[in-house]
Every structure is written in C-alpha cells, then in structure tokens.
Simulated scan of single mutants.
Amino acid sequence: MSTIAASATIHPMAVVEDGAVIGENVKIGPFCHVGPRVVLGDNTEMLPHSIVSGITTLGKGCRIFPMAVIGGDPQSVHHGGEDTTLTVGDNCTMREGVTINTGTADFGGKTIVGSNNLFLANSHIAHDCRVGDHVIMSNNVMLAGHVTIEDRVILGGGSAVHQFTRVGRHAFVGGLSAVSYDVIPYGMLNGNPGLLGGLNVVGMTRAGVDRATIHIVRRAYKAIFETEGNLRDNAAAIRAEFADCEQVVQILDFIAAESDRALSSPTRGQKG
C-alpha cells in the first residue's frame, strides 16, 4: 500500500503505483508516473510527463522536469533484471530529458547522487556512478558507468566521461570535451582528447581560496606535471613540502588513490 502524505498534491491524470512513498508537500503533475518502489522526499516536485521508477529514493526539495526518467534500469548487457537502486540527495534539479539509471548487481547495485546538484537538459548519469554535492552538468553531458564526480565539479555542455573515470572536486571540464582519464581536483580539462590545461583558478577563487594559496597550488601543479618523471612519483616526492596546504593534499591523495584509469595531463592522449 502506498504511503501518501495528506499535504501532497497529485494530479488526477498522474499514475502513482501502489507501494510508493510520497512525502509532505510533494507535487506530482499530469501524466507523471511514480513506480511502486519509489520514495519521494518532502517538497519534491514532478512536472508533467516526468517518470521516477525502479528502487529509487529522492531527498527533499528535488524538481524533475518533463521527459526526465529517473531510476530507469541500467543500460548494461550484464544487467539481468536484479533489484538495484538509485539514491538522490536533497535539492537536486533534473531538467528536461535527464536520465539517471540504477546500479548493476556485479558492482554493488547502487547509483548514488548527492545534494544540491543541477543536471541540465538531456544529461545522463549511468549505472553505478557516484556524484557528489553542488555538481553542475550542462546540457547533453554523458557519464558512462562507474564514473565518480566529486563535489562542486562543473561539466560543460556535450562533454563525455569514460567509464570508471574520476573527476576531482572543483574541477572544470570544458564543453564537448572527451574525459578519458582521471582529472585532478581543481584541474581544468578541455578538448578531444581531453588535455589538462592547468588549474580552475576561477572556481578556486569563487570557493574562497585566497591568492596566496592558489600560488602554492600552482607550484605543486608545476612540480607534478612540468617536471620530468612519473606523475605519481612526482606527487609522492612533494608531499612533505606541501603538507600544510589542504588543496594540494587533496590533489596528492587523489593521485595516490587506486584507480582503473590513468591521470589526465597536459600531454596524455595528445595526437600528432
């Protein structure tokens, strides 16, 4: 049996299947469809022709625009119809045509999206992705399966992220870029193939990082990417020198972590 809060508003031409849980002040417009294992948090709004299906939980204050499909089955040949889940945090906006899939059983069965995110029209989050908080995905951004997007990343329109790739916090990916390798925190990547073009100084400034700290991070960046030798060895070699800078430590920890992908750099994948 469904649990529907008395304050919820459901249009008579919407379909809310038996078993759904509908929170306080939820608004569900005409021609919407809510599956039987869906939980909609308080103050969430579904605009006409939007769908939430699967074993999907949305937090408070989310907005889902027309033709978005949230909680659809994973687009994977390995998916055999197993019960897998999607969890979305609070205050996420999913614009027209956004698709977010549940996980796959072989990899834990969970797609997890944080809070305060903005997903613009026709952007896609595939199975088993991990998306942090305050992320902006512009129109037509595509995340393949198992991608990790950390907090406050901005992905420009039409960019595509290869499966199992990580994009570090506060990174910026330019429009139409092909993200084939991990992007360090505070990095800026552009092009196809995507090349690391330095630091997202604008993003760092907006985040309240002072000029002196930005200069420290720039020195660390040069030591890692503009010095001869292996990038991971270069990063390990400077850890003691930059141990007091939080932003540099975040970069070094990101580089040191295990990953299925190599690191983006100013030259990796460059043609010619």
Rank of each mutant, 00 (worst) to 15 (best):
G187F: 01
E226H: 15
R232S: 15
G198Y: 02
I216T: 15
A223M: 14
L196M: 13
F254Q: 06
A243I: 09
F225V: 08
V249R: 12
Q250N: 14
A220C: 13
H215M: 06
E228P: 15
A220N: 13
A240R: 03
R206L: 12
I184A: 02
E241R: 09
D244R: 11
V202I: 15
G269F: 09
G198A: 04
L176G: 01
V217P: 11
D182V: 02
L195Y: 09
Y181M: 07
T205K: 14
F225P: 07
D182E: 02
S177P: 02
P193E: 00
I238V: 10
N234L: 11
A243S: 15
G269Q: 07
V202W: 03
N192W: 00
R239W: 03
S264M: 13
G229Q: 07
D233P: 00
R206G: 08
L263V: 07
P185C: 01
A223C: 11
L195M: 11
D182L: 01
M204N: 11
M188D: 00
T227E: 11
L196N: 02
T227Y: 05
V248S: 10
V249C: 11
G229I: 07
V201S: 05
P185S: 03
P266G: 07
T267A: 08
T267I: 09
S264V: 05
G191D: 05
G187N: 02
H215A: 04
A223Y: 06
R206E: 03
L252E: 04
E241D: 14
A235Q: 02
P193F: 00
D260G: 13
A262W: 03
R211M: 07
V202L: 13
A212T: 13
R239G: 08
L252C: 08
N200Y: 08
E246G: 09
E226K: 14
V202A: 07
M188L: 13
A236Y: 05
I224P: 04
S264D: 00
V249F: 01
A257T: 07
F225K: 10
R232C: 13
L231P: 03
A256H: 10
A207S: 15
A235D: 02
S264H: 04
A178H: 01
P185F: 01
T205V: 03
I214L: 10
G203F: 09
Y181W: 10
C245I: 12
P266W: 05
M204T: 10
A207P: 11
A236Q: 13
R211Q: 12
L189Y: 00
R211G: 00
L195S: 03
V179S: 01
R232P: 10
A212D: 14
A223N: 13
G269C: 09
A236C: 04
T205G: 08
D182W: 05
T227R: 15
A257H: 08
S180L: 14
R239S: 14
I255V: 12
Q247A: 03
D253V: 13
A220D: 12
G187M: 01
G194I: 01
A235I: 04
A256M: 08
I214Y: 08
Q247I: 03
A257M: 09
S264L: 11
S264I: 06
A178I: 01
F225H: 12
A237L: 06
L196G: 02
I224G: 08
T227W: 06
